[in-house]
């Protein structure tokens, strides 16, 4: 097992940015802005954000903005909440949200709210509690939550609560750790955690830990590093993180590292990617692994970034 190969992971992330010529990068072209957020946040947690060319990143992010105010996954792509939050998060990392036309971006987001309080991800109307989180987190980072009907938004999220205390993508849909993160995160940001059945949900979440120490996303599923983030951040937000075996989870995440070339995979011995590298490092940060910046469980950004935004 050993330790976190922090230097190797930094190198791995920096190298992805340069490697635009392989098939993996072609397939992810349309969501490059998500990839950039995962990579840059990982670097920041590792204390190496300075290693990237800030100006180049920022001007690229800004050129992903659509005339509607929303952001696409890359230049020339259509806007979606998924990409808009990543753009705002990246700008937050660099303390540059002020270069945004905030009323315009927040109007784009607010027009995606539906009558029942739910959010569509784009103008095509798909509804999912993930989009509620994306909208609420984005607007909160821009200090513009007053642009939407928060009460209705919260009401919709609560209507997705299940008998196990968890949340699904729509009312009645199965509880899933990823959706739970989104719902609990949105409720945390809006100050509505009292609607969560914390003890019941906490038990369901800690039942996600399997013998290997890793966490799964649903009963009887395999453990996966990305759930270290979704389950763990939810447990922290509802103040029940001591209910899992943290040491065993740390060990599981460390076992998923590629010690030689950097990067973290979903399970030991699988291929690494930037997505799981981010979730692994962010998970370790939540577990207070030494040498890492603390990350905020609701905003998924380093705590110092959040403090800079809200405590100024």
């Amino acid at each position: 097992m050993g330790q976190l190969a922090a230097e190797k992971h930094t190198k791995y992330i920096l190298q992805i940015e340069k490697k635009k010529d392989d098939i993996e990068s072609a397939l992810t072209e349309h969501l490059r802005i998500n990839g950039a957020y995962w990579g840059l946040t990982t670097l920041d947690i590792l204390g190496n954000l300075k290693a990237v060319e800030q100006e180049a990143v920022i001007s690229w992010v800004m050129s992903c903005q659509h005339e509607s105010g929303g952001f696409g996954g890359n230049i020339g792509h259509d806007p979606h909440l998924l990409y808009t939050l990543s753009a705002i998060q990246i700008l937050s990392l660099f303390n540059k949200t002020q270069i945004l036309n905030i009323p315009k971006v927040s109007t784009y987001i607010s027009t995606l709210q539906n009558k029942d309080g739910s959010f569509s991800g784009d103008k095509w109307g798909e509804i999912d509690t993930r989009f509620s989180y994306l909208a609420i987190c984005s607007l909160s980072l821009l200090n513009s939550l007053d642009k939407i009907n928060v009460e209705k938004a919260v009401e919709y999220i609560i209507s997705c609560k299940n008998l196990d205390g968890g949340f699904g993508c729509t009312p009645g849909a199965e509880s899933h750790s990823g959706q739970i993160f989104c719902c609990v995160g949105a409720l945390a940001i809006t100050g509505c955690l009292h609607y969560v059945d914390k003890d019941l949900l906490g038990w369901w979440l800690c039942e996600r830990q399997v013998k290997s120490g890793g966490l799964n996303g649903r009963p009887e599923k395999l453990p996966d590093v990305c759930y270290s983030w979704w389950v763990l951040s939810s447990l922290i937000m509802i103040d029940r993180v001591d209910w899992i075996d943290k040491e065993k989870l740390v060990k599981f995440i460390l076992e998923c590292q590629d010690i030689e070339n950097g990067g973290i995979s979903d399970r030991p011995d699988d291929a690494v990617d930037v997505f799981h590298t981010y979730f692994g490092v962010a998970g370790l940060s939540l577990l207070e692994y030494p040498g890492l910046k603390a990350i905020d469980p609701a905003y998924a950004l380093p705590v110092d970034v959040i403090n800079r935004l809200f405590l100024k």
């Binding site: 340069k18 490697k19 010529d21 098939i23 072609a26 180049a56 001007s59 690229w60 230049i75 020339g76």
Partner: peptide, 15 residues
């Protein structure tokens, strides 16, 4: 062709 922003892009070698 894909516009990769202000940074010149490495020639594309994928499919």
């Amino acid at each position: 062709p894909q516009d990769d922003g202000p940074n010149p892009v490495v020639p594309i070698a994928y499919s």
